[in-house]
């Protein structure tokens, strides 16, 4: 999800043109290592395209975690009870932490975090489309935990076995920590569904708004997802977008029904033969529009991140200046 290739066709063509010529012997040796399920570590030789793919994917994933703090952060001060407030704070904090683990993994590939963050702020880097939707009611916090984190986990578990060591290790830690995220969201939704008419309305409304964007998180259908084959070969990606999406749908539909929520899809049906839930068509025009910047909150999210960064500049400078003075005193 946070890791699907969100580049436009033009961006991909440009990247392909910038291809460097690699030594075929080294390439073969590299592929053999991957095929033997060996981990690739930071200082090991790797094809430039592998490095670039990883930098793009890991940093996009990190940006998604950081931008992802905003929609949920929107409700921290309004969380209805101490318990919910503490849970939400801890969860949003985890997202910051996960962003940091991932930037840290990306930095092992020889790129500075500052550079990656600048790319985000300049609009050159992508992040998951899901965070460009607004959190309107408290139920959205439940829906995000349950659906968005649910989708994220489905996508992230296979990444724990990704061929790049630092990324795989970061993902193992993240998956372990995120295990409470989905549960707390589902619990919050279930509490609303047990509650008053107004609470049930809130919950169903959140379900209606988040369901389709959550399905889009797995990225475009396999039929148009050109980039996957190479990533599969490199074991950066292990399952296709559609496979993971189906896995999520099959797990989530019964969860919705169990607490009395309707899935907002008139065409949804269970196929007895395949044992899978089948959905109606996903509106990919909406997906690509949000990727391109035309989601409801794209500007708000970027403004918030940029202003945090810009207004923090004097703080970071001051801390560096103080450290330099102290180092000077010590040396003298």
């Amino acid at each position: 999800m946070y890791t699907t290739d969100l580049r436009s066709a033009e961006e991909k063509r440009k990247a392909a043109r910038a291809k460097v010529v690699e030594d075929p012997e080294k390439l073969a040796e590299f592929q053999a290592r991957i095929d033997r399920d060996e981990f690739i570590e930071p200082k090991d030789w790797m094809p430039e395209a592998y490095r670039r793919t990883l930098i793009r994917q890991i940093s996009q994933h990190a940006h998604s975690e950081i931008v992802g703090m905003l929609p949920e952060g929107n409700w921290i001060t309004r969380a209805p009870t101490f318990r919910r407030k503490l849970i939400l704070l801890a969860k949003v904090q985890d997202e910051a932490g996960h962003g940091l683990y991932l930037y840290s993994a990306a930095e092992t590939l020889g790129v500075a975090r500052d550079e990656l963050v600048d790319q985000l702020h300049e609009g050159k880097a992508k992040y998951s489309t899901i965070f460009n939707y607004p959190t309107l009611t408290w139920a959205d916090i439940g829906a995000i935990g349950w659906l968005v984190d649910g989708a994220a986990i489905t996508n992230q578990i296979p990444l724990c076995r990704c061929s790049y060591g630092p990324y795989a290790r970061a993902m193992q830690r993240i998956c372990k920590e995120e295990s409470f995220h989905q549960r707390q969201g589902y619990e919050a939704m279930a509490a609303l569904m047990r509650g008053s008419k107004e609470q049930r309305r809130m919950a169903q409304d959140a379900m209606n708004r988040w369901w389709w964007p959550a399905l889009m998180m797995f990225g475009p259908p396999d039929s148009v997802s050109i980039h996957s084959a190479q990533s599969m070969k490199w074991k950066i990606k292990r399952y296709s977008n559609d496979e993971l999406r189906q896995r999520f749908i099959d797990a989530t539909v019964p969860q919705a029904h169990a607490i009395g929520l309707e899935v907002p899809d008139p065409e949804l049906k269970f196929n007895e033969e395949t044992g899978h839930w089948e959905t109606g068509p996903i509106d990919w025009d909406e997906f690509w529009a949000v990727v391109a910047g035309d989601g409801p909150c794209n500007y708000d999210r970027m403004d918030a991140r940029r202003s945090a960064h810009d207004e923090g500049a004097w703080v970071r400078e001051a801390a560096a200046a103080h450290a330099a003075k102290r180092a000077g005193t010590r040396a003298a």
């Binding site: 500052d114 600048d118 801390a319």
Partner: peptide
């Protein structure tokens, strides 16, 4: 961005009796 904040590698001892183990990095002034 980070105005010369340095990258530090972080090692954590998870319990007394065990060695410190590398866990990742942070940026700090």
């Amino acid at each position: 961005s980070n105005e010369n904040w340095q990258l530090y590698e972080i090692f954590i001892r998870s319990a007394k009796g065990l060695s410190h183990r590398h866990v990742g990095s942070v940026h700090a002034a």
